Simulated assay, not measured.
Amino acid sequence: MLPVRVPARLAKTAMTTENTAFPLADVPEFRPRTGLMAMICAGSRMQVLTYLFVLLLCTGLYLEFFAGLNWNSGEVILLLHIVFGLIFTALFLIWIVGHIRQGQFRSQRQLFTGLSWFLIAKYILIIATGLLMMLPPVIYLTGTIWFWHFETTYMLTFLHLWGAIAATAGLLVHLGLRHWRRPAPSSCGGER
């Protein structure tokens, strides 16, 4: 009888005449998720974060360029932007911790890894500047009137808006690279 040739990626778990059982060490451990992110299934988690990001980008662009034309609707848009921003921040921070542990340190593609760290830095910048811009209204609710200097407000707005636009471009490239892989070497000795 001729020996059966088994691909290297299946060699550990392939059933042969010498090994008729699958090693338990190769079976990944299943840990059920708990908490808020467990309510959203894995496939839709990314969709929720993506839709929230798009909504925040659109409301942010409206606030930057069109809210001055009709400030009454601008107040409503600003409130929605703040509420959805807080929801996005909570969901993103919960998700990113697992995402970094799961794949960021094991990534083998340098361009993809570098872009991923850049994207995480952009999101941290967006979240930080958004929270800093929320300080004056929060302090106002406590009874004290305090605002950033105009230059500081302008800088925070600039970093928040252009950080979001850079994060949008980075996210599109990141998602494009996510599905790109180097062609696997031929298992037939280089001949096809």
Rank of each mutant, 00 (worst) to 15 (best):
P3G: 05
V4G: 08
P7M: 10
A8F: 05
R9G: 00
L10P: 01
M15W: 04
T16S: 04
T16E: 03
T17F: 15
E18W: 08
N19M: 14
T20L: 14
A21L: 12
P23M: 06
P23G: 06
L24I: 01
A25E: 15
D26I: 02
D26L: 01
D26N: 03
V27L: 15
P28F: 06
F30Q: 09
P32V: 13
T34G: 11
T34C: 11
G35K: 13
M37C: 06
M37A: 10
A38M: 10
C41L: 15
C41P: 09
G43E: 04
G43N: 06
S44Q: 05
R45K: 11
L49N: 03
T50I: 08
T50V: 10
T50D: 00
Y51E: 09
L52D: 03
L52K: 03
L56Y: 01
L56M: 03
C58T: 10
G60T: 05
L61V: 02
L61D: 02
L63M: 10
L63I: 12
F66T: 01
A67D: 08
G68I: 00
L69T: 10
W71Y: 09
S73P: 07
S73C: 13
E75Y: 07
V76Q: 14
V76M: 15
I77N: 05
L78I: 11
L78H: 13
L79Y: 15
L79N: 14
I82E: 12
I82K: 12
I82V: 11
V83W: 11
V83A: 15
F84S: 12
G85C: 12
F88S: 05
A90R: 01
L91M: 05
L93Y: 01
W95C: 04
W95F: 05
I96K: 04
V97P: 05
G98L: 03
I100E: 07
R101A: 12
G103Q: 07
F105P: 06
R106G: 02
R106Y: 04
Q108Y: 06
R109Y: 11
T113G: 02
L115C: 03
S116V: 01
W117P: 08
A121Y: 03
A121V: 10
K122L: 11
Y123A: 00
L125W: 07
I126G: 00
I127S: 14
A128P: 00
L131K: 02
M134D: 13
P136T: 08
P136S: 11
P136H: 10
Y140V: 04
Y140R: 02
L141K: 08
G143P: 03
I145G: 15
I145C: 14
H149Y: 09
F150E: 08
F150A: 09
T152M: 08
T153E: 15
T153Y: 10
T157A: 13
F158R: 09
L159V: 10
H160A: 01
H160C: 02
W162E: 11
W162C: 05
G163E: 00
G163W: 00
G163R: 01
I165R: 02
A166L: 08
A166D: 04
A166V: 09
T168E: 01
A169L: 02
A169Q: 01
G176H: 14
L177N: 02
H179M: 08
W180V: 13
R182V: 15
P183T: 05
P183Q: 06
A184V: 15
P185T: 12
S187W: 04
C188T: 14
